[in-house]
Design a protein around this nucleic acid. Structure first.
Length: 554
DNA sequence: AGCCTACGCGCC
DNA sequence: AAAGGGCGCGTAGGCT
């Protein structure tokens, strides 16, 4: 059972039942209270909801209590289909898809909304959303998508990709509305502990002021330590020439200011990126409110808008604390990308190594004389396209012992270097070179002559990108599939997904439910493995911790 | 004053 | 240890 639905923008919406073939196959009606209608139909026959875009269609329904099980997200599907057809980056909205279908001028997608802090009501004042599309538009585009979907190289896998992408979109709205439990008082205490007291006027906290003084003493002159240019000049006057002020460069500098600068940079970063003003902007009512954007990264990984939810520093995770009587179930897929490589490359020996708990240890025992660290740099270097450094001899060993895996990543790299497109396991297509190439790499500043060295460097960079794309994009598919499965079983518990970060999920649940939630997450990971890879020997073990505080996980 | 890029660093 | 992939975000510093 499928039901196509178009919200009318006033809390109501148009609905029509679709047949198994995707054509109107039942009653068509207008609901004045769409959320109530959706909730009732969901209870009765749990249809797959076909709608223009989960990101806009679902939030008002969920806010009104209408949680749905499955959907088809036309906009995300359109982006996948456009990519598969080599039309990467063209407008993906329902309106654009319908215009292409009917041969009319294609409207551009609306620019991405700037991040809206949760306390901000500006968004409601400037509602420039276009008129809602007609139900017929939705039906026509959906039928067209089904036809195009059957024409891709592997429709079975692509269908799973569309389902997983749509489910991820549901999960993203739900996680965003749940919010991440956040103790403002704990956050404040750790800021004071590390930074000292905040100054009243919004200036730097005490420890930063002190470090600035000590850096001045070390150089014999006052500088702004947060300015890389000033730091470089100060070192130059002290007779030390540095290529940059990066941390690993400073760590090798023998000068009394160097360790002070390293400490300053770390604390300055904490203050500006996750300090008091960040907390005031993004934390309200005991929750950190982030907005998640599934498929926001070219590889299919999620992005976020506002608050930097995917870059919460480890030290700040101390503020992520479960409610009283509740716990956090933290599940992390260990060594996900090497395991993905083992599964997709068809390398029998690497797949056997991925059947156990520690893949790097298995590689070390087999091909690296027991040196686990060397096995790790070899595998990571192969996936990222490392060409220099100490990893080179290790890469030779990898090539010799795991030739099929080596050939797989090399083929992806060669395709990219020659301007071709690569696809993930389920069929997400990489963007074409014009999208990822830097203008400076391709367009010699003056004259018409081709800049061979720079063109070569650009091709190699492109090769590293496609080499990694096939792995990273497939890993994102596995994670989305896990989420799709998990949100289907989680509702049997009181658990709620509250965070997702590439290969890690957090579930907030009653302490007594933790065991069941942990079992549900393990089951979802296994389900994702089977759905994507069938009978592969590779396993995707989860590290699961039940904790009150996020920082205590693992 | 606003726009843009480079830099640097947090996460995976 | 060094340096390969993907991001978001805040700042400095240049530009218009």
């Amino acid at each position: 059972m499928m039901v196509a639905v178009v919200p009318d923008g006033t809390g109501g919406g148009w609905c029509v039942e679709l047949s198994a073939a995707g054509r109107p196959g039942g009653e068509q009606w207008h609901a004045t209270d769409l959320a109530a209608e959706v909730a009732a139909r969901e209870r009765r026959d749990a249809p797959r909801w076909v709608w223009p875009a989960t990101a806009t269609s679902y939030p008002p329904l969920l806010r009104a209590g209408a949680r749905v099980g499955r959907c088809h997200d036309v906009e995300l599907t359109e982006a996948l289909l456009l990519g598969a057809a080599g039309h990467w980056g063209e407008p993906r909205s329902l309106a654009a898809a319908h215009a292409r279908l009917t041969g009319r001028p294609v409207p551009p997608d609306p620019p991405p909304r700037p991040p809206t802090p949760p306390g901000d009501t500006q968004g409601a004042l400037f509602d420039d959303s276009p008129a809602p599309p007609s139900l017929q538009t939705l039906i026509d585009v959906y039928a067209d998508q089904r036809a195009r979907l059957r024409a891709v190289p592997d429709p079975g896998r692509f269908t799973l990709l569309v389902a997983a992408e749509s489910a991820a979109a549901l999960a993203a709205v739900e996680i965003g509305q749940a919010g991440l439990p956040w103790r403002a008082d704990v956050h404040d205490a750790l800021l004071v502990e590390l930074l000292g007291e905040a100054s009243r006027v919004g200036g730097p906290p005490r420890r930063l002021v002190e470090l600035t003084e000590r850096i001045a003493a070390a150089f014999g002159e006052r500088i702004h330590p947060e300015s890389p240019a000033e730091v470089l000049r100060a070192f130059a006057r002290a007779g030390i020439s540095l290529p940059s002020t990066r941390a690993w460069v400073l760590r090798q500098v023998d000068h009394p200011a160097a360790p002070l600068l390293l400490e300053f940079k770390e604390l300055y970063r904490l203050w500006t990126a996750h300090g008091w003003s960040w907390r005031e902007q993004w934390v309200h009512n005991g929750r950190f409110w982030a907005e998640y954007v599934p498929g926001g990264v070219v590889s299919g990984r999620w992005a976020t808008r506002g608050g930097g939810a995917l870059q919460i520093p480890r030290v700040v995770r101390r503020a992520v604390v479960a409610d009283p009587g509740w716990v956090l179930v933290v599940a992390d897929a260990g060594q996900l990308e090497p395991r993905i490589l083992a599964a997709v490359s068809g390398d029998t020996r690497l797949a056997e190594a991925g059947a156990g708990g520690d893949m790097y240890a298995a590689l070390a025992a087999e091909a690296f004389g027991g040196d686990r660290a060397r096995a790790k740099v070899a595998l990571l270097g192969a996936m990222y396209g490392q060409t220099g450094g100490a990893a080179v001899p290790a890469l030779a060993a990898l090539r010799q012992f795991y030739p099929a895996a080596w050939a797989f990543v090399e083929a992806a790299a060669r395709t990219g270097e020659t301007g071709g497109l690569v696809r993930s396991w389920l069929g997400r297509t990489s963007p074409p070179p014009s999208v990822t190439a830097r203008v400076a790499d391709l367009d010699p500043a003056d004259g018409d002559s081709v800049d061979v060295p720079r063109a070569g460097a650009a091709a190699r960079a492109r090769g590293r990108f496609t080499r990694n794309f096939v792995i990273q994009a497939t890993a994102a598919e596995w994670a989305n599939t896990l989420l799709a499965s998990l949100r289907g079983t989680l509702h049997e518990t009181a658990g709620e997904l509250v965070f997702f970060q590439h290969d890690e999920v957090l579930v907030h649940c009653l302490a007594g439910e933790a065991e069941r939630v942990a079992a549900a997450v393990h089951g979802a990971a296994e389900q994702a493995r089977v759905l994507l890879f069938g009978d592969t020997p590779v396993r995707f073990p989860l590290g699961v911790s039940v904790v009150e505080c996020y920082v205590d996980a693992k």
